[in-house]
Nucleic acid binder design. Structure first.
Length: 85
DNA sequence: TAGTTGACCGGAA
DNA sequence: ATTCCGGCCAACT
């Protein structure tokens, strides 16, 4: 059994290129449907450079945030991968 | 140990 | 449609 953080990282890495998932979806895949907030916290404080967190967005369709508020960078990355914003 | 924080979510006003 | 409130989870102080 891996820690919740490890599972979240795996899920985010498992996101296909050109696709996006909401924090909630990631939390669900990680096994904690109500831990969307925890997922955000993991990304925010313990961001992993090995995980494409720019593929994770809010449930409203907004990009939410990125490393230090670089939402613009996030949008550009997603569009560069073929994702539709 | 307890309290606060954060890139959130859903419902209510 | 926008704004406010409560709730949930993990990490930090």
């Amino acid at each position: 059994m891996k820690s919740f953080t490890e599972t979240v990282r795996m899920v985010v890495q498992n996101i296909p290129k050109g696709s996006t998932m909401t924090y909630k979806d990631v939390a669900i895949k990680a096994g904690r449907p109500l831990a969307a907030r925890a997922v955000a916290n993991i990304m925010a404080k313990n961001f992993d450079g090995t995980v494409p967190c720019h593929r994770v967005i809010k449930s409203d369709g907004s990009l939410g945030g990125y490393n230090r508020g670089g939402e613009v960078i996030k949008r550009k990355l997603l569009m560069s991968e073929g994702a539709i914003i």
